[in-house]
Design a protein around this nucleic acid. Structure first.
Lengths: 346, 346
DNA sequence: GCAGTTGCTGGAAACGCTTCCTGGGCGGAG
DNA sequence: CTCCGCCCAGGAAGCGTTTCCAGCAACTGC
């Protein structure tokens, strides 16, 4: 903590002091610490001794400035309290930590003007790359900010393709088709889908629903509610209330996204509706409640952790090789549970 | 590196180029941009024009190095995928963003050796402060790392008091006493508590249980299982299985922590045990499932977001005033729901 | 014995900013 | 008219690293 008794900042020893202590040049200290090959055994020993004695720890800030890389990745996320993103962040953090990278996290609370601001901020902080999940694919400020970047960007499940962008998509369609077909097989025709405002996952889910009807040559007797934010629990509730109070209520409801599912369940639960009997129900994302609800809830499941790992892996590849470019599609799976039953009167 | 209009890094204009463009000294540019009072109207206009034309954005890294402050706060958390922490992080991020601070996030996955490493890492990155939730209050490496710091540390609900530390505690006892008294009033005597390995929240909950029995002069007919990590769902399951298969199983189970509660519910649910009849149940943290479970589950609730806000606020105060020191205790509340019923045969 | 490596080290110039210090111009007071 | 002080601008020294370059000694090969 002290150098010969004195140090301006307690515990803040710099490389110059180490060099003096070891009686060598700063450049030599630097070489030792960064494992440069041109270092003699003796030099290494003297420097390491001085480092040890002084408790020296390099200043990563100065290193970053000089090296022009921060070993930091920005994570611009829509809503960290959504368990989906929490899982993604957790998985990515693990992978990045192993690789010596740190995570700078921003949360946009679903406000797309913040997305743009955060991209700019992360750029100013000179992160080496950004993992991005925006709340509006078309926000011009966001796209502009993205266009100015010269670092790799891994985009999570959004159709945003500006600059050096790689993509981790989720194949919502596959799982959702199975879900819809399951409902159709059970005789449901008036299926309602509660969805967020249009963007990739929402579009995919809608497309799956439409395709299933089209494939069977059925009339378009489904309905789709879009407009709320994907992580707006209350919108899920409102939409559900609205659906249930129609003269001709749906016999099955599909909630796109785990937060909308929660909102929907609140209303269904409050009204004492028995899922799989009066109304069948399919949710998205296998959060704990889906299994433990009574009855257990059918969901379109994806592997949250895999998304995070995959995003991190792609980012690390892109960081190593500036030419690296990739898109990846991760699967979804329909998990049938008792919340889906035969349509009333079929 | 640059020749009048060309720059090796596209979009990376530095202050020198701005100064040249405006025909002034770098120091003047700096003064304009940091709102220094000694700047003439004319100067401001010329500099701002140049900034605009070149699309200059200051390099926060260089700024941090020079100013000796990063406007970054480190968040060393045990498990980000625990919804409690996700909420805390979300709330804190909001507050920090407003104040111009960014968040550097680390996740320890409940491994306390990582806690120590992360504290060191954050220090090397020269964060201005750290918000900390460690998984072992007594880990020596962690305490040592903490002792070396000269920045404020806001400790979340842990009895760790090293260096410049402030505290945000949760008053688990109050809520838990109400919970236990409620169970005792319902005639339960064989109450089991599933708890994590000893640290502040765990100790508090245990103390509440013990105190309630003592206050009523009751024999110690409760039992306490401690040992798993607080966010280990499987431990919750194992402990519950074990309790239920005893010759003399408890009539009421209390799960400390939302993850332990999930694990417990999995087992109870799988065994088809009707809560409030055969076994009464109290959980911790009001996660969505507690309200939507059948029957709804009694919990000891706290305000997750308030914890995050409070931690951020304390940190900001400590950042402004090096002398600032504070401890805060946030309340908990018992929410009674039908998962608690009369003890069988009482 | 000498040029050409090879192996290691030190000096110094960046990286992009802030800030202290110096000093020029100018208005008001003596 | 001079002096003092004020307002504003420029120069330069750092913040703590890395890395390029030069240099020196010792060795190799001829």
């Amino acid at each position: 903590m002290t150098v010969d008794g004195f140090s301006s900042q307690p515990g803040r020893v710099n490389m110059r002091e180490v060099a003096e202590r070891a009686g060598v040049a700063m450049s030599s200290v630097s070489r030792v610490l960064s494992d440069h090959p041109d270092v003699s055994k003796d030099m290494r020993k003297r420097v390491m001794a001085a480092v040890e004695e002084l408790g020296y720890e390099p200043n990563l800030l100065a290193q970053s400035l000089r090296r022009q890389q921060t070993r930091t990745v920005g994570f611009a996320i829509g809503d960290i309290s959504n368990p989906l993103f929490a899982d993604i962040v957790a998985a990515a953090e693990t992978r990045f930590r192993e690789a010596g990278y740190s995570l700078l996290l921003t949360n946009s609370e679903g406000r797309s003007e913040l997305d743009a601001a955060h991209i700019g901020l992360l750029a100013q902080r000179r992160v080496d790359g950004i993992i991005l999940s925006v709340s509006d694919e078309h926000n011009p400020a966001m796209l502009h900010a993205l266009g100015r970047l010269d670092i790799p960007v891994v985009v999570l499940d959004r159709n945003v393709d500006v600059g050096r962008s790689l993509h981790v998509y989720t194949d919502h369609q596959a799982g959702m088709r199975n879900a819809v077909n399951h409902l159709l097989d059970l005789g449901h025709r008036r299926i309602a889908m509660i969805n967020g405002q249009p963007m990739r996952p929402v579009n995919e889910r809608r497309a799956a629903l439409e395709a299933c009807y089209a494939d069977r040559g059925l009339e378009r007797t489904y309905q789709i509610l879009e407009g709320g934010a994907l992580s707006d629990v209350d919108y899920g509730s409102r939409a559900t209330s609205q659906l249930l109070s129609r003269p001709d209520p749906p016999t099955a409801i599909i909630a796109g996204g785990n937060q909308l599912m929660l909102g929907a369940l609140r209303v269904l639960h409050a009204r004492g509706i028995r899922l799989g009997k009066q109304v069948s129900f399919v949710g998205c994302d296998d959060i704990p409640i889906s299994e433990l609800y009574d009855p257990p809830i059918s969901v379109v499941r994806r592997d949250n952790l895999a998304i995070g790992r995959c995003a991190a892996e792609m980012m690390l590849d892109a960081l190593r090789d500036p030419e690296y470019r990739a898109d990846m599609v991760l699967p979804t799976e329909f998990v049938g549970r008792p919340s889906c039953g035969r349509a009333p009167g079929s």
